[in-house]
Simulated assay, not measured.
Amino acid sequence: MARIEKVLYTGKTRTSSGGRDGEARSSDGRLDIKLSSPGSAGSGTNPEQLFAAGWSACFIGAMGKAAGRMKVALPPDLAVDAEVDLGTAGSEYFLQARLNVSLPGLDREVAQALTDAAHQTCPYSKATRGNIDVSIHLV
């Protein structure tokens, strides 16, 4: 396991009042949300949506770094649609995920190279590698 040599940022949150049906707030006050269990009638988001949002944002950042190294301009309308499934196998809970990467206007080989490089460097991709089923598609 790689060890961090220099911490660049620490996200701090506190979740209370019921976990998946509670509230989460960041220490700086910039995040203040209600949580609801997936599929419930609650008005909040859920951990799977938050994970998908974080991963897709990080993945775009990793593609930006790769594009800089490859001297390629990313299209302004690029997008990553992340889908994070919560499911069971027997009595155990698991996650699985799909990232659907859209890089309109780029040659498919270049787009694939950017996607592959991002998946190797994105911290979320590294954290999930070998731990959950992940598929990445260029759309």
Rank of each mutant, 00 (worst) to 15 (best):
G105D: 00
G11V: 15
E109N: 11
F59W: 11
F51P: 06
S56E: 13
S125D: 09
S56R: 10
C122W: 10
V80P: 07
R98Q: 10
K12C: 04
P123T: 08
I60H: 06
E109Q: 11
V84K: 12
A113T: 10
P123A: 06
V139S: 08
S26P: 02
A82G: 15
I4E: 02
F94D: 01
D81E: 15
T45G: 06
E48A: 13
C58K: 13
L86H: 12
Y93N: 02
N131H: 05
S125L: 09
R3A: 12
Y9L: 06
E109P: 02
D21Q: 12
T45Q: 11
G42H: 10
V80Q: 07
D107Q: 05
R30V: 04
P123Y: 09
A67Y: 01
V80G: 04
G11E: 14
E5F: 04
V7G: 05
G22K: 09
Y93C: 00
A24N: 09
V72N: 01
M1F: 00
L99Y: 10
Q49H: 15
L74V: 00
A118Q: 07
S91Y: 14
Y93S: 00
P104N: 01
G90E: 13
A73M: 03
G29L: 03
I60E: 08
A82T: 13
L74S: 01
M1S: 08
G44Y: 13
S43Y: 08
T13C: 10
L114R: 03
G68L: 04
D85H: 14
I60S: 08
V134A: 04
G11S: 15
A41M: 08
G61K: 07
A127F: 05
A62G: 09
A62L: 08
A79Q: 08
G44L: 12
V110L: 00
G29P: 01
K6D: 07
M63F: 05
V80E: 09
I132Q: 04
D133Y: 02
Y124C: 00
A82C: 15
G11F: 15
E5T: 08
V72L: 00
D133P: 06
S17I: 05
A89C: 10
F94W: 11
R25K: 10
V80Y: 08
M70C: 02
V134Q: 02
A82Y: 12
S102G: 06
A2E: 03
G64C: 05
T128G: 03
I33R: 04
L138C: 01
G130C: 03
